[in-house]
Computed example of a mutant assay.
Amino acid sequence: MSEYYPPISYTVPPSEDGWLLKTILQKRLHVSRKLQSRLKLTEQGITVNGQRVYISVPVRDGDVVEIRMEKEISDDILPEPIPFRILYEDEHLLIVNKEAGIIVHPTHGHYTGTLANGVVHYWRDKGEAFRFRAVHRLDQETSGVIAIAKNPYVHQHISEQMIANEVDKRYLALVHGVPSPEEGEVDGPIDRDPEEPHRRIVTPDGYPSLTRYQVVEAYGSSSSLVQLKLETGRTHQIRVHMTSIGCPLIGDKLYRHPVYRMLPPEEEGAPETVLPQGLTPSERTVVLLDHSISRQALHAWELSFQHPVTRERMTFQAPLPPDMTRLIGEAKQHELDQ
């Protein structure tokens, strides 16, 4: 007999007496056709009052409909002790705070050292069997909240919420300059840069992309802490949009401040003492702030969605990481020095 995860249940109310089981699965449990087909092939995948039945049968008032998914593991992911902080966990979900510098899932050339390796190791040590299913991803150098589904049903539901724009993702970023106005949106289509395909640019022929922003705190005119809400999910969207309005992220080595066009390549990483003397104080501040953090200053601060099983709206927050907290201190000091 197969091992199963805890069942997901639904009790038929009087108003739905006589409905077909397949209607309950579709309209009340919201089981996708793909998952329904998979459950039908499983011994205890779909039951009514504990008995396996055809989905074409009618159900009655008080019947308990249950779906069960077979336990799985990620055989292709090597368990490895990788650091991550748990923000929330239940039998269906794992919400973690990813550190900057860690890739979410193994890719070509990065088979170890990922968040997935760490999560699989954590589950193995607890004697639990789950397949790693990240509901969304963060760039390697972006820290913050990420949701991991413990079964295909949960993954399906959160993915559908994302497609319907019902998942609220908010970020905090430290940027050069202060956006004007201090609260607004960037509505700019994004696509690959034809000259540098690994980069993205705002272009009229790109994919529709919308980012809402609000300045949380400004440090003079040189830098600011900005909260951002993604309405679409394009690659590098925040980094591209903030660069397009003249406020690139501090520390971003791919989408750099225009001041670097004035610096010879060999001097871009040079300390303050050997920077060209022609730089203005504000241009010098740009370079010094970039030197104060080893990655783009972007943090996935808050994630909100409806729990696929309890139907409760849940919000998870990850505190600002130490490197960005230190960077705020540096920005405030430069504000005093100007």
Rank of each mutant, 00 (worst) to 15 (best):
G177R: 08
K27N: 08
I328V: 15
E16L: 14
Y153L: 12
P14G: 00
Q44I: 00
T112A: 11
L230N: 06
L35T: 08
A149M: 03
K98R: 05
K71H: 03
V167F: 10
I328H: 08
V215L: 07
A129G: 03
T142I: 00
D75P: 06
G113N: 02
H136Q: 11
T315W: 08
Q227M: 11
D125F: 03
K22D: 15
G45H: 05
N117C: 10
L93F: 06
E166F: 01
G62F: 05
I238W: 00
R133K: 09
P308V: 01
L21A: 07
P79S: 00
V57T: 11
D63L: 01
A164D: 08
I163T: 14
S74T: 07
S224F: 08
E312M: 12
K71A: 09
A149P: 00
E185T: 05
P322N: 10
Q227I: 07
Q161E: 15
F316P: 00
Q237P: 07
S32Y: 06
V226T: 02
E312A: 14
R52P: 01
Q44G: 07
G269S: 04
T107P: 04
H257P: 01
Q277K: 13
Q36D: 07
R200P: 00
L327V: 05
H136C: 07
S180F: 12
A297H: 04
H30P: 00
H155E: 15
L115A: 13
V202H: 01
S37E: 13
K229W: 12
T211M: 03
G233D: 12
Q161Y: 01
P7F: 09
L29N: 06
T42M: 13
D337V: 10
T325Q: 13
Y260E: 01
S292V: 06
H30R: 09
V12H: 09
A300G: 06
D191W: 05
K40S: 10
E231R: 14
Y255Q: 05
L172F: 14
L336G: 05
I77Y: 05
D205Q: 14
V96W: 12
G18D: 01
Y255R: 05
I102K: 02
N151C: 02
V167L: 09
L172R: 15
G184W: 05
P181A: 03
L210D: 05
R28G: 08
R256K: 12
A218W: 03
M324Y: 02
S222Q: 13
D337A: 13
V286F: 04
R28I: 02
Y54S: 13
H334W: 15
V175Y: 04
L230C: 08
P208A: 01
H176K: 11
R200F: 15
R60P: 02
Q296I: 05
Q306N: 11
I201V: 14
